[in-house]
Design a protein around this nucleic acid. Structure first.
Lengths: 146, 146
DNA sequence: CTTTCTGCAAAAGCTTTGCATTACA
DNA sequence: TGTAATGCAAAGCTTTTGCAGAAAG
């Protein structure tokens, strides 16, 4: 059943991280992970509202604490867009960058291997080894331009 | 005297912006612009401390208000690194991107025309017209790797 | 003179922390 | 049974806003 194996991949990753740091898997952490994995990107507040419906006593602080854990595992990545702090789901689609419309706020994800390759070259020239990167292109989408 | 002309270029840009929006050029705005132009990137708090020495009664709110203006002219660009909000001086060196060491915090600026060209292509494919962009590469610098 | 700015202080986010209690392993 | 996690509320930061007096055009 490869489907089931795939479904639990992220949970396994979290379990590994928890075990390595002597932390515990809780009902809340699992709920937060599951809700997070369904989204492309979320704010802490958004997750809080989604989860509050199922579990009215969940705390916003727990969301923040768990999102920090997910960032440590590499599944999530913190990103600032305007005044909002978004947490990107990197597990789902792999790494992706963003095109952001400055007029309507529309966000398009994209990937480009050539750019990534050039990034590696630039880093090497400066003696750096890349761990991760963020690329955001701001402009006007087709609708807003016309 | 080309030197003087060059020195006032950014001030002219600010004056234009102010005129266009029916705003006024004040002593504080000029001071903040000058201090800002001397730096590669600063936080609002840093500018506040620098300027407090000359003018003990300057307000932090004025710094924030003026930095917002500088962003609108395009001379400054807001950037989030970790928990800090930095304001980049784009006027001085033109647009540049950043290599950031996740271990020691060292920041290296760079420019790469090929990457910029590819960005344009990606944007065009998605119907976007780019206004600006941010590229940050996070990793380990030579010292921290060894 | 009229409008905009400033500094101050208060307010408003958003995120983190302290603590008693609960849940995991 | 011993740690670690949770929820709540309070504290902490950074950034914004309201307002009366000051300054610019």
């Amino acid at each position: 059943m490869p489907t089931m194996a795939k479904a639990g991949k992220e949970l396994e990753l979290l379990k590994q991280h928890l075990a390595k740091h002597n932390l515990k898997l809780t009902r809340q952490r699992e709920q937060i992970l599951n809700a997070f994995l369904k989204m492309e990107h979320v704010t802490a507040e958004q997750l809080y509202h989604i989860l509050s419906k199922k579990d009215p006593h969940i705390g916003l602080a727990t969301i923040y604490r768990t999102l920090k854990l997910l960032c440590e595992t590499g599944m999530a990545q913190e990103r600032h867009f305007g005044s909002q702090t978004l947490f990107d789901n990197v597990a789902h689609k792999g790494h992706h960058d963003h095109l952001i419309c400055t007029s309507c706020g529309k966000i398009v994800e994209f990937q480009n291997c050539q750019i990534e390759q050039l990034q590696e070259e630039v880093a090497a020239q400066n003696g750096f080894t890349i761990q991760t990167h963020k690329l955001e292109l701001y402009g006007l989408c087709a609708k807003c331009r016309s």
